[in-house]
């Protein structure tokens, strides 16, 4: 049973990781907790649903949802965050993000109703055995696609021009702009990439659990934020590790401890980690400059 639960945990964790990446990338550059990120994930799941229902191939639908959320993420950044940047405290930006989050989830609830909607079974599922453990093919597909996206992201950050600019901005926004980097464009790109990953996460969750609903982003967003902090907020590999380990911890908590304390276990571990290592698993310690 252990190995099956481990795979369950990794599947859940990979969806957390995909959302956490968006949190951590945005945070790394503009130090903003983008609370609307969970809603982008929800919109991704619904956008995928509409495309699939209109008869598009699954992978094209996935791409479509990612592009849609890229634009949505950039739009949100342009309207709700950019006017605030540099002028006001980070707390104001956070409240603005909460406003966007409430706005987006209500918008979807008005449009689709608050009921849970069924996601069609687009990818046929079969289970196969490896030794004594049974794995469902859907889980394998989800793990593979997530891994692919994460490797792609690493390549993008390490090898391309925009990736280099993003790394520069995360070190020092002001110095980067003095070096001739178009900071606004880099931030836009960061939001776009993060949103696209969240959309992919949303759609895969929809396919796997066969259900989407307008408020699915709130708890998922909270958990993903926890994953990002756990891994060390601002660190891209940290978000991946944080997401996967949070998913595994949750599932193992249900499997071997107590399922009624599921959410508490995840948060308690997070708080413990922060006590022992405030910068998270992969985060770097930054001493405050005076």
């Amino acid at each position: 049973m252990f190995w099956e639960q481990l795979i369950n945990g990794l599947t859940l964790g990979s969806s957390y990781a995909l959302i956490a990446l968006g949190y951590t990338m945005v945070y790394g550059i503009v130090q903003l907790i983008n609370f609307a990120h969970g809603e982008i994930y929800m919109f991704g799941a619904f956008a995928g649903l509409f495309l699939v229902l209109s008869g598009v191939n699954v992978f094209i639908a996935l791409l479509g949802a990612m592009v849609f959320c890229m634009l949505l993420g950039m739009l949100v950044e342009r309207i709700a965050y950019r006017p605030l940047r540099g002028k006001s405290s980070r707390l104001s930006a956070l409240i603005s993000a909460i406003g966007v989050s409430i706005f987006l989830s209500t918008l979807m609830a008005l449009y689709r109703g608050t009921n849970t909607t069924r996601y069609p079974e687009i990818i046929g599922n079969s289970t196969f055995s490896v030794g004594s453990i049974q794995i469902s093919s859907l889980q394998v597909i989800i793990l593979l696609v997530s891994a692919l996206l994460m490797v792609g992201l690493q390549l993008l950050i390490q090898k391309t021009r925009i990736g280099k600019a993003m790394r520069a901005c995360s070190q020092d926004l002001e110095a980067s702009s003095l070096m001739g980097i178009n900071v606004n464009r880099v931030i836009s790109a960061t939001f776009a990439i993060g949103s696209a990953l969240a959309a992919a996460g949303g759609m895969m969750v929809g396919i796997y659990y066969n259900a989407v609903w307008p408020y699915m982003g709130t708890m998922a967003g909270l958990k993903a934020f926890a994953a990002a902090v756990l891994g060390g907020i601002g660190s891209v590999p940290g978000a991946m590790i944080g997401g996967l380990s949070l998913g595994v911890m949750e599932i193992m908590g249900v499997a071997y401890l107590s399922s009624s304390y599921k959410d508490a276990i995840a948060f308690a571990i997070l708080i413990l980690v922060l006590f022992i290592r405030p910068q998270g698993i992969m985060g770097q310690k930054i001493s405050k400059k005076v």
């Binding site: 945070y27 130090q31 907790i33 980070r90 909270l222 934020f225 926890a226 902090v229 907020i233 009624s260 304390y261 599921k262 959410d263 508490a264 948060f267 308690a268 997070l270 708080i271 922060l274 006590f275 405030p278």
Partner: peptide, 28 residues
Amino acid sequence: IPTLRLDGDDLAMVTIGFAEIIRVFFLN
């Protein structure tokens, strides 16, 4: 007490986590 070690967003996370733990505690 953790505010001595944590700032800003990590603290926000700890307080969110604390409230969630309390909620789950009362659920049980």
